[in-house]
Simulated assay, not measured.
Amino acid sequence: MKQLIALLVVSAAALNASAQAPQPPEIAARNYILLDVTANKVLAEREADAPQDPASLTKLMTAYLVFDALKQKRLTLDQHMTVSKRAWDERKGDPSLMFIDTTMTPTVDELLRGLIIPSGNDAAVALAEGVGGSVEQFVAMMNRQAQAWGLKNTSFTNVTGLTQPSHKSSARDVAMIAVHIIQDFPEYYPYYSQKEYTYNKIKQHNRNMLLTRDPTVDGMKTGYTDAAGYCLVASAQRDFPNGKRRLISVVMGTASKEARASESQKLLNWGYSAFDALRLFDGSQAISTVPVWKGAEKTAKLGAAGPVFVAVPRGEGAKLQTRVEHTDPLVAPLAKGQRVGTLKVTTAAGVPVAEVPLVVQEPVELAGLLGRAWDALRLWIK
């Protein structure tokens, strides 16, 4: 995930430096970003690092911490939760509700559905109290997680996304949270594709219109406040000859529910049509074989931790160039998975496309005493 974080904070300017780079369509949003998750590449962005009111996009982080508590077995999906007066009081404000009250004991599974599908503020508070002990402690957990990921433009003061002066995030940071949910908790991601939910005999529809318009969209979260405008994180996965390809768009500050859906759809369609995602190497494939000093083996095979995909303007894939940079001299012992180099992918003009960490595929043990002594002498002469 460190590789993904590094690429997310890189501007799309390097990609657009190429004369052949496709230009994104006009997007009627204050801020946006389009990310190719498969290739770990930002395809387009505008003011993606500007702190904004995130509205209910906040609930992505709320859900992430609940998913983590489930993974750590501090909660179970069938565990019943109490509903505090504080959670019930959410109905006095924003209309985004699951409609729980203090006489109910919904399960964690029910609360997650209420949080994600109708964007229930009451569900957010109930879950926060159940995981953190109090809303305030849970908010502190949210901020610690944001800091651990290096989200420099995010500061949480509540779990719902209601407007407060210091409650901020950015399009890039929101995209980061969304990617973490998809990659860290694939078992829980299907919550975001559910189109409707009925609880307490009240049926509510998911506010993400793209779930019913585009069969390849399988998430993720809407948001609205007067300060934020209409916001949407949309995630789509489409099949291509070289495998599945996932894009995520984040639009913030659009004018209406229809606008956030149509502008997100415009970004996704452009990303899929204007760029190719090329599979350069398989995860098990040796990308380079390099010499090793003082080792029982004289060489080591370097490869990526997983398949290597890159996103390039359509038709430009044949012009890519790759270069391997590695530690030199490379001295044993070497552990499997140890990072010792980088695969750099550029266009023919030298414009950076991707940088992929390279790791040792098989361990290399130390050579015997004589072998180590001989290589030490050779290194000294070198």
Rank of each mutant, 00 (worst) to 15 (best):
E129Q: 02
A146D: 07
K201I: 00
E136I: 06
T105S: 01
N153D: 14
K201F: 07
D184I: 07
I116G: 01
A146E: 11
K152I: 00
W149L: 15
T154S: 12
D101C: 06
V217H: 07
V108M: 06
I181W: 14
A128R: 04
D122C: 01
V131H: 14
S119P: 01
M176S: 14
S134W: 13
D218T: 03
K168H: 10
E129P: 02
L127A: 04
L162E: 05
P186Q: 13
Y197D: 03
E136M: 08
L162A: 05
L127S: 05
G132I: 08
F156I: 08
V135G: 11
M141L: 15
K221H: 03
L115T: 06
D122S: 08
T105Y: 02
L112I: 11
A171N: 08
S134L: 12
V131K: 14
Q204H: 14
G114I: 03
A140V: 02
E187R: 13
T160G: 01
R172W: 13
I117R: 04
F138V: 06
N206E: 04
N208T: 07
S193I: 01
F99E: 09
M209I: 00
N206Y: 07
S169F: 12
D184T: 12
Q194N: 10
G150P: 12
Q183D: 11
I202T: 09
S169C: 11
M220R: 10
R207W: 07
R207A: 06
L127W: 05
A126W: 04
T212R: 05
T163A: 02
R213A: 06
A148P: 10
L111D: 13
V131Q: 11
E110R: 02
R213C: 01
